[in-house]
Amino acid sequence: MIKQHWLVQHKGALILLPSLILTTIFIYGFIGSSFFFSLTNWRTLAIDLSLRDPLWQTYADMFTMPRFQADLRNTFVFTLLFIGLATGIGLGLAILLDRQISQKGWFRNTFLFPYALSFIVTGVVWRWIFNPETGINLFFNFLGINRALEAAGMDPLSPGWTTDPTIVFSVNQLLYHLWPDGRVLQIEWGIPVALIPIAIAATWQLSGFVMAMYLGGLGGISSQIRDAAQIDGAGEIRLYSSVIIPMLNPITISTIIILLHVSLKIFDLVFAMSGVGPGFATDVPAIFVFEMMFKAARYNLGSAASIVMLVASSVVIVPYLIHTFKTRES
């Protein structure tokens, strides 16, 4: 670390100042007003800023709504599925393209192209593709997979995709066991099958960007480091797993934070692809906020849900920040 003169220190803060002022107003000021709305009686278009009695009643109501419980479950499951898939595939593509091959630019642009398309329209296309009667299921017949399955005495493969309300790996019994008061849970906690196609569609759209992030990171790693490692006799797999991927950790963190912001706030894609889904199997908090605020005009409830979305993001950010604090000290 460079020894810092007070003037230099001052200068650094000066560069940050415009961003900090804007952030204070546009983010913290607005969050503050949202939080305030969530404590009021405002549930029609007529503004009513009187405080609710008891003050936290809107939050209490919200957490006992089966729909909101389903939203929390869905966000959690979707985030894991989507971040896992998108990071893995994006990194894979970046590593494949990080070498001398012909038509490299062409591949890169094709993988990136889905990211350029409007979510509203890709949501519709994916809804068609996952239509159980006319969509991708036809390929199971076409490719002979179903004939093979039938020959083996099994049922043909015809998933219902987004129309399937099933929840698999339900953990309710376990939860009741751990937490006897857990009967307030009004929904099944598990993996909603209908979320899988949504995660696939989102991965398709975002993995190209993840690839770009990693290509950017790989571009920052100098050729000297690679050469040095190769002189040491490290094979390609070793080179990536023990030298390059660890070096990409900061990029991985950026990627996960960006994907987290997508998965927590995902709206257009789900809205166009499956809406709230059968029995709220694909509902997400952003749709909840949207419908409560602008369709039901329940501004207090919508604001409360958005505050919860914000708090949820700190589950990942706070550990990350603690981590950066620690590495700085070491």
Partner: peptide, 18 residues
């Protein structure tokens, strides 16, 4: 670091709410 955290946190603000 604290300023960075404050800046980053705002990234997660749901736009419908503001």
């Amino acid at each position: 670091e604290l300023l960075f955290a404050l800046l980053l946190f705002g990234f997660f603000i749901p736009y419908q709410a503001i």
